[in-house]
């Protein structure tokens, strides 16, 4: 266990080395937020509607801001390292070392992203304070606690999703396009751009059958008190189900992929 904690610490150190990088990324997240803010302001002013897609103006604004930040909190990047390990023989050292590759990747991911994740949650807390003070958003402490739980679940679900995706490098030579297309599709289907209610009830139902909504939409609905306690609890169970399901699937894919691994290079 100690070796994984050490890896986690290494990841954290690496992340802190590029803290300006992170600050610029957060700054970049402000631009789409401003764009959406202006769009929704125009829409609510023009339509004079109290609610659109089930959300009031203040709810929509809060959602857009929090979703953009949540998307930042769930950033990945390890998939490129994994693809490189598979392509250029970096996995070789894990064959001879008493170290699980999954454990290694998870520890480094947690270490590298923990700082980003916590900092973004702090920025979200500031945004939440603004939302409750100026946009009249009502937030319950229980919802915040449940949100934190679902956010941690989303963090691991995101890891599993991209871990599984990275394993395609066993069979595909070029993977960046696949990674990027899944990233953008996942962003939209998880509610990272607009709430899923925008797509209509039937489409929202189909999306609920996929794991993506448990990354952003579900945690934010929990935070904003849209869901009842029972719905939140069943959502948390489904989130865990997807995480474990993807873990099991990745174990199977890893085994099959290992058979076609050529151990080139290094």
């Amino acid at each position: 266990m100690n070796k994984y904690m050490w890896l986690l610490g290494m990841g954290l150190q690496k992340a802190l080395t590029y803290r300006v990088n992170y600050l610029v990324t957060i700054l970049a997240a402000a631009f789409p937020i401003i764009l959406q803010w202006m769009l929704w302001q125009s829409i609510y002013t023009y339509t004079q509607a109290d609610k659109l897609y089930g959300l009031s103006y203040s709810d929509m604004l809060s959602y857009v801001v929090l979703a953009a930040l949540m998307a930042q909190a769930l950033r990945t990047g390890f998939e490129y390292d994994m693809a490189e390990d598979i392509k250029s023989g970096g996995l070789n050292r894990f064959i001879v070392q008493p170290l699980s590759y999954f454990g290694y990747r998870l520890s480094v991911f947690v270490g590298t992203n923990l700082g980003y994740f916590v900092t973004t949650l702090i920025v979200m807390a500031v945004a939440l304070w603004v939302a409750t003070t100026y946009w009249a958003l009502s937030i319950d402490v229980t919802h915040v606690a449940l949100f934190l739980l679902s956010a941690v679940g989303a963090f691991f679900l995101q890891f599993m999703l991209f871990y599984l995706l990275s394993l395609t490098a066993f069979w595909l030579h070029e993977v960046w396009a696949l990674f990027e297309s899944v990233r953008v599709i996942s962003l939209v289907l998880s509610g990272g751009v607009v709430p899923l209610s925008v797509f209509g009830t039937s489409f929202e139902y189909y999306l609920s059958l996929l794991p993506f909504q448990y990354l952003i939409y579900f945690p934010l609905q929990t935070l904003m008190g849209v869901l009842s306690t029972e719905q939140v609890l069943s959502g948390l169970v489904l989130q865990l189900f997807w995480t474990l399901g993807l873990f099991l699937l990745s174990t199977v894919v890893w085994r099959r992929g290992s058979r076609s691994y050529l151990a080139l290079g290094g």
Binding site: I43, T47, S181, V184, I185, V188, V194, V198
Partner: peptide, 21 residues
Amino acid sequence: VEIGYLGVKLLYAYIIHDTGV
């Protein structure tokens, strides 16, 4: 990838069309 990004851009067009703003 480009179709994915295009989808995000078209989301705005869809919202504008849907709300008639």
